[in-house]
């Protein structure tokens, strides 16, 4: 279990890194924390000719609040996110989700940008990014652009990043005061990828009915799945067990062919997605 021959570069600037990626003579791949890529390399499932390691590039490791958003550098480790008072206070949903990512050792190596760019459909971070309406800042040979999270995750292990682009920062808008949230997940063991899960935000209006919500599922499709039908179903509704169950039912009805694997068949995943929605909504409303 050793990788195929490859070259390795650890540039010190973003411009150098982008130039290495843009060099069409070699197939290059960015490595961040290596928690997904290293096993793929060792099993020779990924065979880039060049690894571009971002660890020496300055300016990719930060968590700060600017203009109503929490901006997190792509090379920030999940452990740093987990331990950040700013994240805990301003983005409690992201904090809660982080605790479900692997174990402390994995969170110490794994990065925010790595999870986003890997786009595993059963991973926590892409789902949270969509639920919170995050924006991805990416840099390529032509300069910088931003991509809304909803457009960033294309399908299984595929993002809107061009081959010569690097994700440099994820910006999470701070939810309005009073926004309820929940993060629910079912996995075989603590720290495993999810069989199904849901990241939910909900806001109530003055009358106590649902004004707005984001219900985003993971583990049940090719990427984060926004449950538009369930969101529409509960808009204007009065919170309560019946409404939560209806939201779950709407999720189950809308899910087309959730993936099946050795741990969960398609029917079970559909059911879990509904259950996580029902439970998660109740929890989120409690936090409004």
């Amino acid at each position: 279990m050793k990788p195929a021959p490859l070259d390795y570069a650890a540039p010190e600037t973003l411009a150098e890194a982008v130039a290495l990626l843009a060099d069409a003579s070699r197939e290059a791949k960015v490595i961040a924390g290596g928690q997904s890529l290293m096993p793929m390399l060792n099993m020779r499932l990924a065979r880039p000719e060049l690894l571009v390691d971002l660890r020496r590039v300055d300016g990719l490791d930060h968590i700060r609040e600017e203009h109503g958003a929490i901006r997190i550098g792509a090379m920030t480790s999940k452990r740093e996110v987990e331990q950040s008072p700013l994240v805990r206070e301003r983005l409690p949903l992201l904090h809660a989700a982080t605790l479900h990512v692997g174990h402390p050792q994995i969170r110490s190596r794994g990065t925010v940008g790595g999870s986003m760019a890997q786009a595993d459909p059963a991973a926590e971070y892409p789902c949270v990014a969509v639920a919170l309406g995050a924006t991805m800042r990416v840099v390529g040979p032509g300069g910088e652009r931003t991509i809304p999270a909803a457009d960033f995750f294309v399908t299984y292990l595929t993002t809107a990043l061009e081959e010569d682009e690097i994700l440099v920062e994820v910006s999470f808008p701070v939810p309005a005061p009073g926004t309820g949230w929940s993060f629910t997940e079912i996995s075989r063991r603590h720290g495993d990828f999810a069989l199904a899960g849901a990241a939910i935000t909900v806001a109530l209006d003055g009358a106590g009915t649902v004004a707005d919500s984001a219900i985003v599922l993971f583990g049940v499709g090719p990427g984060p799945v926004r449950a538009h039908a369930a969101e529409a179903r509960i808009r204007g509704g009065r919170p309560g067990d019946e409404l939560y169950r209806e939201a779950g039912a709407a999720v189950a009805a809308a899910l087309t062919d959730p993936p099946a694997d050795v741990h969960a068949d398609s029917e079970y995943r559909r059911h879990l997605a509904a259950t996580m929605t029902t439970r998660g909504l109740a929890e989120a409303v409690q936090r409004t």
Binding site: P39, R188, R189, H190, G191, D192, F193, V262, H263
Partner: peptide, 15 residues
């Protein structure tokens, strides 16, 4: 179909 610890699940201290 269970060729790694991703899919062959040994209990951990959490379980």
């Amino acid at each position: 179909l269970t060729a790694s610890f991703m899919d062959y699940l040994m209990p951990t201290i959490n379980e």
